[in-house]
Simulated scan of single mutants.
Amino acid sequence: MAELMTIARPYAEAIFAVAKEESKLDAWSETLTNLSAIVSDEAMQAFMANPEASDEQISDVFKAVLKGSQDKELDNLLSVMFENKRLQALTFVSELFENMKAEEEKKVRATVISARAATVEQKKKLSAALNAKFDAEVEINYEEDSSLIAGIKIIVGDWAIDGSALSQLNKLGAAIAQ
């Protein structure tokens, strides 16, 4: 997975630069989401892995889905990724592009994992705190994980805080073991 992310980064950066220059961030976002869905489809993965499927047949499927797109940059992207056998990285290209787009638009995505569902009041306070911390509009995805026992984990990109009881108990256990 990390290898595909590394492969995807230059593609995402190049597409982002083109999309930004042409003021087509939303259009590219939609296109990359669609391409990601195609590549992620189990039937498509099986078709692409099938040794009997020719490169031309695989290419034709993408062209058919895009319905003869007139976008030269999109054609170039698919051609280069196809020639280098990197179509599997399209999902990561889409993910990285979305992260760059969110950063450009001063939007941040966060995941909050808690042992129990957060109340409306807790969500308001957390949203205000994260908006202030990142000086951006923070879109929060809430998840529940009862194994945390209590507390929360907050993940924003590479930044994370683990304030769960499970984490504290694990740290205590490690300290006692030393």
Rank of each mutant, 00 (worst) to 15 (best):
V80N: 01
Q70D: 10
E103N: 15
L66N: 06
G68C: 04
E103W: 07
A129P: 00
V80T: 12
K107W: 06
A132I: 04
D60H: 08
F82T: 03
D135C: 03
L90T: 07
A110G: 10
R116E: 08
E98P: 00
Q122S: 11
M100G: 04
S59M: 05
K125Y: 02
E56G: 07
K107L: 08
M100T: 09
K124H: 11
F134P: 01
A128M: 03
A117K: 11
L74V: 13
A118D: 02
K124C: 03
L74G: 09
T111R: 06
V65W: 14
I113W: 12
L87F: 09
V108P: 12
K85D: 02
K133A: 06
L87P: 07
M100Q: 15
K85Y: 12
S79T: 13
A118R: 09
E121P: 00
A136S: 15
L77K: 09
R86A: 08
V112C: 08
F92Y: 11
E73D: 14
T91R: 10
A115D: 01
I58F: 07
R86V: 04
L77T: 11
V93A: 12
L126A: 08
F97T: 08
V120F: 04
V61L: 05
E83R: 07
A117N: 13
L87C: 07
E137I: 11
T119N: 01
N131L: 01
A132C: 11
A115Y: 01
Q57V: 07
F62G: 04
F97W: 13
V138N: 14
I140M: 01
K101R: 13
G68F: 10
Y142E: 09
K63N: 09
D71A: 08
A128E: 14
V138K: 13
Y142D: 01
Q70W: 07
Q88S: 12
E105M: 13
V65I: 14
Y142L: 04
L130I: 03
I140Y: 10
E103A: 14
A110H: 09
K125R: 05
S69F: 05
R86T: 02
A128K: 14
E104K: 12
S114I: 10
